[in-house]
């Protein structure tokens, strides 16, 4: 069939691509609309990726700046969100590299709760089990524990996990965003989930709300796929 071989016209299917094409034509309002649509999504991914709200805001602004700078060369070759998160992934990788270089040359860094070095897996697991027997963790402690667990993943596992969890992206879209194969994404996400499970097992097994959750879900009838519903 002739249709099957035609390239996908993203501007027909993706309203954000149409907005970006208006930005290319010099429409400032269209750019502001894109910022409004994507700022929270970018902030969420980047904050959990770099572990700092302040840095996530800087990186988000850097992403939008790159989008604006690229407007004249923009050609819709992917979904807008895929293109945007590809830029975000590059910006975050560059930030991590320059952060590593600063460390190498001994530039002193800020030290606060959100920027502290991630704990090792075994430390996290110990921390989780030490906290558990006495009482169930409150919401803030749960969130902190999960944040630390996510920070302990390597950067690629973390990015793939966040795109899957918060953007509900398919393996194909994550692969395109990160410049990897679908099989690599499958492995990354599997390793990420297993690592999370290992870190959080004491929490899962001893925290009462989770324990109930396991019992209630330990049935084939409750284990339907979730990926599509998480967007």
């Amino acid at each position: 069939m002739a249709l099957a071989t035609e390239p996908l016209r993203y501007e027909l299917h993706d309203p954000d691509v149409r907005l970006m094409l208006q930005v290319r034509e010099g429409n400032a309002a269209a750019f502001e609309e894109l910022v409004l649509r994507y700022q929270n999504r970018l902030l969420t991914i980047l904050e959990h990726l770099v572990g700092s709200r302040e840095q996530a805001e800087d990186l988000t602004q850097e992403v939008f700046l790159r989008v604006f700078r690229a407007r004249e060369r923009y050609e819709p070759g992917a979904k807008f969100s895929t293109w945007l998160f590809t830029i975000a992934n590059n910006v975050a990788s560059n930030a991590r590299r320059s952060h590593a270089r600063r460390k190498e040359v001994g530039v002193p860094e800020r030290h606060n709760g959100s920027d502290s070095a991630p704990m090792q897996l075994d430390q996290l697991a110990k921390a989780a089990s030490a906290l558990m027997p006495a009482r169930a963790l409150d919401k803030a402690e749960q969130a902190e524990m999960v944040r630390e667990a996510v920070k302990s993943l390597n950067e690629r596992q973390r990015m793939a996990l966040l795109l899957s969890k918060f953007e509900g992206m398919s393996y194909q879209d994550i692969a395109e965003t990160m410049g990897l194969s679908v099989q690599a994404i499958k492995s990354l996400l599997s390793r990420a989930r297993v690592n999370l499970k290992e870190i959080l097992t004491p929490y899962i097994e001893q925290g009462s709300p989770i324990e109930q959750g396991i019992k209630s879900e330990d049935s084939p009838h409750n284990s339907a796929p979730t990926g599509a519903a998480e967007e």
Partner: peptide, 20 residues
């Protein structure tokens, strides 16, 4: 095994979304 992997995944809901 599936239940444990799913539970760890569900804990990510604690991370929350960032609002500008």
């Amino acid at each position: 095994r599936l239940a444990h992997l799913q539970q760890a995944w569900d804990l990510l809901d604690n991370l929350g979304r960032t609002e500008a």
